[in-house]
């Protein structure tokens, strides 16, 4: 298929970008890495007349961390940059891991975390870890900003609550509490370089007695959107996890998913993997949290 024709705008500032969106509102898309968008356009799935590029917008690539604010990932920060960031690696290992193993080196050098969220593919690798960390995002449009909890963001495969004229300005991830652990594990049925057929992310923090204060679990590739597992989370909170409990939580995760058969894996395989990976992820989170590692 041939690429449809369009005009590209390359604003220097967010204001200018928002103006351009407004001016071309009838047929416009924002892009940054372009790794998902250009493929969709070449396949004919999308054909906007205007593209607004965020690659030259000043200040949008920043990744910053402060105890008060937690982590703030700029809307144009690339996956590779987030994956390599020292603070992300130390404090948000599940996210760092996702950003350094997903797709390929080249795609990670081009694509952004915000783009991964906006694309809203159920298999997007940063989605589950960010859900597990309780992240939210800041969407901006000409009228102002709003903060959207990631749990409220995804509405279907490729769908989210962003308005057409909104831009993801930043992703905010809360500061991790003491005695917490987090992990992301992905499994593809075939190559190591592959789209995840199943992904499980977990976050857990413990009280001084070793009981779970808070647990968040998120699953990728097993439902039309990435999903949290409230049932499993509730089972763990207030408890000291042991193998039996972890297995029960894994089973609860399976109940939270609605997988499909596709060329990458069957639904029944995905279900079995949710169980296996959830247990492993929880065990890893617990060990980290109990061991005092970040």
């Amino acid at each position: 298929m041939m690429m449809p024709h369009f005009t590209v705008h390359q604003p220097d500032s967010l204001e200018e970008a928002l103006d351009l969106l407004g001016r071309h509102r009838s047929s416009v898309k924002v892009f940054c890495g372009g790794t998902d968008l250009l493929i969709k356009m070449r396949s004919g799935a999308l054909s906007p007349d205007h593209l607004v590029s965020l690659t030259r917008v000043k200040g949008l690539r920043t990744i910053s961390y402060a105890e008060s604010d937690g982590l703030v990932i700029g809307g144009a920060a690339r996956l590779a940059e987030v994956g390599k960031n020292a603070e992300v690696k130390k404090l948000y290992p599940a996210l760092a891991h996702a950003c350094s193993v997903m797709a390929t080196v080249q795609i990670r050098n081009m694509g952004t975390v915000a783009g991964n969220l906006a694309n809203a593919a159920p298999s997007g690798d940063t989605l589950a870890p960010l859900l597990a960390y309780g992240a939210s995002l800041v969407a901006v449009e000409r009228g102002g900003r709003r903060q959207i909890k990631l749990t409220d963001f995804f509405t279907g495969p490729g769908l989210n609550v962003l308005e057409p004229l909104e831009i993801i300005e930043a992703i905010r991830v809360p500061d991790p509490p003491p005695r917490c652990g987090s992990a992301y594990m992905r499994l593809s049925a075939r190559s190591k370089v592959d789209i995840a057929a199943v992904g499980v992310a977990g976050f857990m923090n413990l009280d001084l007695d070793g009981k779970v204060i808070r647990c968040r679990l998120a699953l990728a590739s097993v439902a039309p959107t990435p999903v949290r597992c409230p049932e499993a989370e509730a089972m763990l909170e207030g408890q000291k996890p042991d193998d039996t409990l972890l297995a029960q939580a894994g089973a609860a995760c399976v109940r939270a998913c609605r997988p499909i058969d596709d060329v990458r894996a069957t639904a029944s395989y995905r279900r079995a993997m949710v169980q296996a990976l959830a247990q492993r992820v929880l065990a890893k989170c617990y060990a980290q949290a109990a061991g005092g590692e970040a």
Partner: peptide, 27 residues
């Protein structure tokens, strides 16, 4: 890893290297 998956109309479903998976260096 590799397999050409076809539907009941004789169409091949995995027509990109994303879905026709051959071993990469790590494999």
């Amino acid at each position: 890893m590799e397999d050409l998956v076809m539907d009941d109309q004789g169409r091949t479903l995995n027509t990109t290297f994303l879905d026709y998976k051959m071993p990469a260096a790590e494999d």
